[in-house]
C-alpha cells in the first residue's frame, strides 16, 4: 500500500521533532538548554536595545502619518 506510507512518513517526521522539547528530562541536558536559552535571550536583548534606539523618538506621529490608498 503506497498510499498510507507517505502519510506515516510525514507524520512521523513531524512528530519526532515536535516532541523534542518535551523529552529534555535529564538534568544535564536541561542545564545546557537553560544556558542556550539564556544566551539567546542576551543576544535578543542587545538587538532590542539597537531597535529601540533606532526608532523615531515620536513613534506615534510616525504611525499616524503612515496612510496609504488601496492598491491592486
Amino acid at each position: 500500500m503506497v498510499s498510507n506510507q507517505p502519510m506515516q512518513q510525514s507524520q512521523h517526521n513531524v512528530q519526532a521533532q515536535s516532541t523534542q522539547s518535551e523529552t529534555a528530562g535529564e538534568p544535564e541536558k536541561s542545564v545546557q538548554k537553560q544556558d542556550q536559552a539564556q544566551e539567546q535571550t542576551d543576544s535578543l536583548d542587545a538587538l532590542l536595545d539597537d531597535i529601540e534606539s533606532s526608532l523615531e523618538s515620536n513613534a506615534e506621529e510616525y504611525v499616524q502619518r503612515f496612510v496609504q490608498k488601496g492598491g491592486e
Binding site: 510525514s10 513531524v14 515536535s18 522539547s21 542556550q36 535571550t41
Partner: peptide, 20 residues
C-alpha cells in the same frame, strides 16, 4: 516538511520558549 515539523514544536511551546 522541515517547517511543518518546526510548527508542530512551536505549537506546544510557551511564550518564553518561543522567545528563544
Amino acid at each position: 516538511g522541515e517547517v511543518l515539523a518546526l510548527l508542530a514544536r512551536v505549537r506546544h511551546e510557551s511564550d518564553e520558549e518561543r522567545l528563544s
